[in-house]
Nucleic acid binder design. Sequence first.
RNA 1: GCCCCCGUAGCCCAAUCAGGCAGAGGCAGGCCCCUUAAAAGGGUCAGAGUGUCGGUUCGAGUCCGAUCGGGGGCACCA
Length: 946
Amino acid sequence: MLSGAGTTRGTSMTEQTAEAAPAHRYTAELAGEFERRWQQHWEEHGTFHAPNPVGALSSDAPLPADKMFVQDMFPYPSGAGLHVGHPLGFIGTDVFARFHRMNGRNVLHTMGFDAFGLPAEQYAVQTGQHPRKTTEDNIATYLRQIRRVGLGHDERRRISTIDPGYYRWTQWIFLRIYNSWYDESAGRARPIAELEAEYAKDPSWATLSDDERRAKIDSRRLAYLSEAPVNWCPGLGTVLSNEEVTADGRSERGNFPVFRRNLRQWMMRITAYSDRLVDDLDRLDWPEKIKSMQRNWIGRSHGARVRFASGEHSIEVFTTRPDTLFGATYLVVAPEHPLVDSLTADAWPSDVDDRWTGGAATPAEAVAAYRLAASRKSELDRQENKDKTGVFTGSYAVNPVNGASIPVFVADYVLMGYGTGAIMAVPGQDTRDWDFAEVFGLPIIRTVQPTEGFDGKAFTGEGPAINSGFLDGMDVVQAKKAITEWLAERGAGEGTVQYKLRDWLFSRQRYWGEPFPIVYDEHGVAHDIPVDQLPVELPEVDDYSPRTFDPNDPNTEPSPPLSRATEWLNVELDLGDGPKMYRRDANTMPNWAGSCWYQLRYVDPENTDRFVDAVNEKYWLGPRPEIHGSADPGGVDLYIGGVEHAVLHLLYSRFWQKVLFDLGEVSSDEPYRRLFNQGYIQAYAYTDARGVYVPADEVVERDGKYFWQDQEVNREYGKMGKSLKNVVTPDEMCDNYGADTFRLYEMSMGPLEVSRPWATKDVVGAQRFLQRLWRNMVDEETGQLRVSEAEPDEATLRALHKAIAGVREDYAEMRYNTAGAKLIELNNFLTKAGVTPRSVAEPLVLMLAPLCPHIAEELWQRLGHDTSLAHGPFPVADERYLVDDTVEYPIQVNGKVKARITVAADADQEQVKAVALADAKVAELLGGKEPRKVIVVPGRLVNIVA
RNA sequence: GCCCCCGUAGCCCAAUCAGGCAGAGGCAGGCCCCUUAAAAGGGUCAGAGUGUCGGUUCGAGUCCGAUCGGGGGCACCA
């Protein structure tokens, strides 16, 4: 037994049962015995091997008529092992995969490991054990745990991102991206060589120096080095992507402060794909929640840039509401805006409002003080304190639409990182501007007629334009169009689209990641490693840690561990102009790199010539418009995982897929056609009076209160975790109940997408069902089969076919909880009947197989079949038994059920009505009067309105 | 502050898409059988009018509008 927690009682009870129970009862021991046997059988027979059309994994036998690619989100092999929450989605995909496999599909279902990552590296830093060793040990544990659950994986397709044979191709894809540029006019990525060829057509190209040409090319690459503000996290010793930084400016992992620093780092030009990443969401069968999170993150907004003259300068603002231009009563620029210094006037105007000066004698003093204060505010301060602050620059700008002179302010409610870092403030239609205008006593002009009865401040709704000259009377959409055209004609602005999405920071200062396939020459110029020299393998090092610093000290520099591996770092290579010394890139790729393309490697894991063979890729992942409609992007048929990767993995992966698609490397332009988010298994945890967690399995409930060792404890609801002392493991469940019981229980707890509390005491219900089903087919005393060869009666056939029809539909719709209930119902029918006809037992076993494959295989074999049921057949309902001869109608009088009648199923509405009115109880209630109305709902009920 | 999802027996959930008898299934509970005893055995019984208010309808758990409670996402993004 792996874990001692919570198993003492269970084990002794199991042993006791085993002693007392009939020899052939379906107990945890018996289940465990044949579960191990069937797991071995499947492995030895390659039961779940899905043949490829071509290559190493192809087969001589003809391919099945249809395919199905089912995938779980790439697990990280944590050292803590699995708890019962982890396999929930895995079982969900397994049931789906098994159902479709039984229906004759060629089903690809496997699982590999996203194995680079911080925990193994941190463990290595503490213990000196190589992260590869830690990771491989964890993978072995993980595989042992999932094997016990009976997942039908094609184990030939197991991959791991840390294998050089895998990350060779991760590096190869990086180079493909590096050697590409985005052609805006074509709307797709193209090889960088084609850009160079286009540049070369221009005679001036030849006049440029090598360095100038290189710089021009490099600035267009989809993977590029950039000296730009990045998220520097001293506590982790690495930089982070925007997606890895929480809204309050801390690292998602470790919760350390993150600072903006200018550093030279690798970036991925994901912004080139902003529009396609938004637009193509419409072509995906994904939960709306995830789509809206991605839309939100990309943050596309349509608007206009407008230029306001201020002295010799021009201040460009971005607005989504150009229609409100007549109501712009002041401008605001961000404290970091490059024009701030030149806009700052020498002296205040004589009539300056006291509120505008910040108490300073000159604008320069006021602005300097304000900028200093703003720079000291953390992201968190800026967010939490929404009181409007700012100072007047002393300058005025001209509103291009009416020539009005309006003051220019510096205020930190305008962010340099979005739009142009400057806004036109329209307090009448914007709450933030209204708040600011109130504090500073600025004029407010309404330019949209508020709806009647509106008594709020800023009006952000729709309405006709007012106080807006030639726009008056237009609705918002018309006015936007008209003013945008007006501005464009005068060169004062133009329509534009703005995004929140930023390029993806792609380098990390860690050891345990993919090295970059890049070297630098003596001039610091980057060169890519020739493809035939990949992979660039990680060197052995003595010290795995990056330098970490005081988490609160932003004035520190990243120092990656690979920069100390000097022998590896400095390398002699022949890159086409003879052997020369180069210096390797000491950064590694972020954890997300390996998971950006793993579905492609699952398809062709052993291919050494290509990352995936084109024929295999098209077969498993290609678009299938004939089935999914003309807009079908292709991709994995069902992808199940948690919602936490909504804007990380799922966005990055889509981006890589699109680049590879543009370059002609793959046939689908989306990686995951259908996405499904499973819920989480949650658990109760208990704390004592000191707030210390106590073992959850030792807590007892009395009168709605909870006690541990006779002291009352406080109940919390949430995650399962070691520190919360409430972990339940799949190993315990397999030991105490068997894997099939565990699978059935997890799938029966509720719909897959819903989070639910774990309740070990409820698991017995699933076991009892399997016990009864077993007993209906196998004699508990002798172990002999006890099915009847006699033909079942009509009622039994009706129960069977009703179950078949319902269960089939439930599996197809992933309603496993109701599928399980229907199987229990059918089994209860057999229990009551006291006899199990073979012609019912066999379909029942087959229908049980996706949920509980081991017991189903065992019974199938005992029923006399010598091949696995993994490939079906799955029963098909006979329509004959789905329609009843007679129907019982409840009779409502004024909406309340008062009587029941039974009529022939083919009776028409008039006949049903006649029988209903003739019913004695109904006649009595009507008292001889004519009903006002009689409603007959065919097959359902009759309602009489008296 | 804005947006999304969810509130059904003591508990987990069906029925909500397409309005038509509130119950498929499980846990816990009562009773009976089996057992020297026990149960993770067998059988059987009971239990809520669907968070609240209002509307539409012959008829509402289901549709619409409020409101309360829980969960999640976004948040000075112009």
